[in-house]
Structures are given as structure tokens and as C-alpha cells.
Simulated scan of single mutants.
Amino acid sequence: MFTFIRRRLIASAITLVGVVVLVFFLARLTGSPVDLFFPEGASPQRIAEFNRVYGLDKPVIEQFGIFVINALRGDFGNSIWQQRPAMAAAWGEVPMTLLLALIAMSVSILVALVLGSLAATHRFGAIDRVVTFVSLVAGSIPSFWFALVGILVFAVQLHLVPTSGSASPLAWVLPVATLSLGPIGILTQVVRGAMIDVLTSGYVRNARARGFNSRRIVYRHALRNAALPIISVAGDIAAGMVNGAVIVGVVFAFPGIGRLIVGAILNRDYPVLQASVVVVGISVIVLNFIVDLIYMAVDPRVRLT
């Protein structure tokens, strides 16, 4: 197990460093923050002082070297946009993002387990056809389109939920639905396929022949043995929910790391952007470890070697 952890940490660290280096150079291709924070005709002295304070007066390669040295100490500089430590700004938005992702992932898994199990137990029947059609549609709808249509229909026309923010429980409905829709469609198909494989296996047919309760066979025995592919896909989806968090942050003005990243890009706030990428990378690495541990707990035959 320790060998697995060491290898996973090394591979994850290399990937994270590569992404951070890429973001460092790509961010600077968008232009200088001076163009946004100073009006035309600003004095050269003020611009030079601004560049000096934020280290933008040096060549890009030298800036990168300074960034690496400071990053190894955990210092990502101060936010140009928010005037506070960049890493503090990034970590401050993580709890809301994780809470939103946790709720959306929980809803996705629960709905997918129910729909997928129903489709598998009524294979090729009317319920299976309806569930398959609905899941394929849900998995095909773009998140940004669903978010905009949801605001237009449920917030603007029907006045059932707020258009933005997170101040009330109703304000969470559309963001959670936006993040959950695609995963529900994908996971439902995965649950259906995995359950069909298990329900047609020899030990399930033997249990039915002995008169065991059909519901107990499905939800206690078959579902557990079908859990491995479900956990794998769910882990990948959960790690990718930060992409949905960006959409939710922009469309619904929902607080979180997604809105922070978009704001940092628009304001050319290099320190916050770089710190946010590191925070997201660390979160994904930790999540992958959790998924691996759950994988081993569900099936003791799996060993992290």
C-alpha cells in the first residue's frame, strides 16, 4: 500500500507541477494587468511602481524562477485584484465549492442507483426504455444551456427560485440540478450495465432458485458486487466537477473556486489564478486517494499494491 501511495503522489505531483507551469505562461499571454488597472495616459512612474510591486518589471523567465522559489515556501504572492494573499483567497472559496459538489454528487448517485437498478430489474421492458431515454437525454444536455434555461423558466417566468446567489436553500436548487444532471445520465447507464452483469451471474440465479427475496438480492448483494465500476466512474465525475463549478459560478453568481478562477482570469490576477490551480489540483489528488480507499473497502479482494 505504501508503494502505491508513493507512486500516486509522485505521479500526481508531476502532473500538478506541469499544469501550474502551463498556467503560469499561458496567463501572461493574455496581456498585462496594467491595461486593466490603469487608465490611458497614466504616468509612467505609477505604472513602473505597480510593475515593481508585483514583480512584473522582470523578464518572464526570471518571474518564473521567483515564482517557483516562493511557491516551494507556500507563498503565491498577493492578489492584484483583491489585495490579500492569493492562497488565502483560493482556500477561502474551497469549502463552498466542496459543499456544492458533495450535495450534487450525493443527489447524482442516489438518483442513478434507483433509476439504474429499476432499469436493470425490468430489462427491455417499458421502465427500462423510459429510464434509458431519460438518462441519455440528461447526459447529453450541456450544463451551461440547462443553467440558462433553468433561470429563464424557473426563476424569471415561474418565480420559484432566485436567479443567483446562495443566501437561501432555494438558491441552491438550480446550481445543484445543473451539476447533477449530466452525472445522473452517465451514472444511470453505468449502474444499469453493472447490475445487468451481476443479476445474470450464476450466484444470483442460484439465490433466486433457493427462494431468496428478490429485493434483498438486488439491493443487498447484487448492488454491492456491481459497485466497483460505479465507484470508478463516480470518482472521475466528482474530480471533474470543478468544471461545472466554473459554469455555476458564472451563471448563478454562486460563490466558490469557479467564480474566483473566472474573476482572476478577467482581472489578469496571476497570483490568484496560480494559487487556485494548485488548490484545485490538491483537492483532486485527495479525492482520488479517497476513491481508491473506498474501492478497497467495498471489495476486500482489491489491494493497493
Rank of each mutant, 00 (worst) to 15 (best):
V284G: 04
L170G: 08
A167P: 02
L29M: 15
A209L: 13
G182L: 13
A194P: 00
F146R: 05
A119G: 09
R52Y: 07
M87I: 15
R216Q: 13
V34R: 09
F252S: 13
L179I: 00
V262G: 06
T30Q: 11
Y54I: 01
V68R: 05
R216N: 14
L179D: 08
I265M: 14
I14Q: 10
L56N: 04
T200L: 09
I265K: 09
L170S: 14
A209D: 01
T188C: 04
T178H: 03
Y54T: 02
S12G: 15
P229G: 13
A239N: 08
F67T: 05
G41M: 07
Q157P: 00
G41I: 10
A126R: 11
V53Q: 08
F154Q: 10
V130S: 03
V131F: 05
W91I: 13
M241Y: 05
P229Q: 09
T178C: 06
R301K: 15
G193Y: 02
I186T: 12
L187W: 01
P33R: 04
S276Q: 11
V21L: 12
E62H: 00
F25V: 10
W172C: 11
V246D: 00
L29H: 07
S32E: 08
Y203H: 15
L9H: 08
L260W: 12
T200F: 04
M1D: 03
I285P: 02
L102E: 01
A226Q: 07
A167K: 01
I127E: 04
P183D: 10
I265G: 07
P85A: 12
V21D: 09
I184A: 07
L199R: 04
V20Y: 06
R259C: 06
S12P: 09
N225A: 15
F4D: 10
I109L: 12
M241E: 04
A226P: 03
A177P: 00
